[in-house]
């Protein structure tokens, strides 16, 4: 599903590459934790997958497409195969949960009928039934993250990128969010890549762990834990 071949990424004006000759392969349906300290290259890794930036060297394949040579006008279509969740939720204020989820379908031109059928399904899946008319300001962090997850998967992406989704949540709420991500991964075999600092979560889930240090992969372990022992 995702292949990095000897990929480096250097930001303009910086000598040290954000990613340094990274090669890795992630299969369809995998659940991968991306760990490492701030500045280790996790975010760059995800930006490359979304084709928000181009690799300075090396080749990136996502969902069968080679991203370096992808034409600008093909990018939107390509991104519909990827859902993203952030630490800070990034919901639209003033819009209800229902509207926030529907927004993702509207802007890619889905018909109203389909939107009306799909959004309630998503609300039920993330466990927010009854809260669909609340605005983000009226919801807890965990609830907001659930809305964000529903928005990320409403267009049925093949890949879900989660950038520290539990970073702003208390441990109990975090567990709920992890269950939800696990469920999405298992039910629809969506490939999930989650960047995190949360050792508890990683240790409990026992999934593949890729650890980045200074832009290089120092560990790639199936059924890994947060600490390297």
């Amino acid at each position: 599903m995702i292949t990095f071949e000897d990929v480096s990424a250097v930001y303009p004006g910086q000598l040290k590459p954000a990613l340094n000759r990274v090669s890795v392969q992630i299969e369809k349906g995998e659940f991968v934790f991306l760990i490492g300290s701030s500045g280790s290259g996790k975010s760059t890794f995800m930006r490359l997958i979304r084709r928000e930036q181009r690799a300075t060297a090396g080749v990136v394949y996502v969902a069968g497409k080679e991203l370096n040579s992808m034409r600008q006008w093909r990018i939107p279509e390509f991104r519909r195969q990827i859902g993203t969740v952030f630490q800070d939720f990034r919901l639209l204020p003033g819009k209800s949960a229902w509207e926030n989820i529907a927004f993702a379908m509207q802007v890619v031109g889905r018909p109203t009928k389909e939107i009306r059928a799909t959004v309630p399904e998503m609300i039920e899946m993330v466990g927010l039934t009854g809260l669909e008319n609340r605005a983000p300001e009226e919801m807890s962090g965990g609830e907001q993250q659930r809305v964000a997850i529903a928005r990320a998967v409403v267009n049925r992406p093949k890949i879900l990128l989660a950038d520290e989704p539990t970073g702003n949540l208390d441990p109990t709420t975090a567990v709920g969010i992890m269950r939800l991500l696990d469920q999405i991964n298992r039910r629809s075999s969506t490939t999930v890549i989650m960047a995190t600092h949360d050792a508890n979560v990683v240790d409990q889930m026992r999934r593949r762990v890729i650890e980045l240090v200074g832009g290089q992969i120092v560990r790639d372990q199936a059924r890994g834990v947060y600490g390297s022992d």
Binding site: R50, W73, I75, P76, E77, F78, R79, R80, Q81, I82, G83, T84, R90, L92, P93, F103, A104, V107, V108, G109, R151, N155
Partner: peptide, 17 residues
């Protein structure tokens, strides 16, 4: 910018944006 960011993220076409 929030809306635009989300539009880009979920793959709204540039015409649409």
């Amino acid at each position: 910018r929030r809306e635009l960011g989300i539009m880009r993220l979920v793959g709204a076409s540039s015409t649409y944006i």
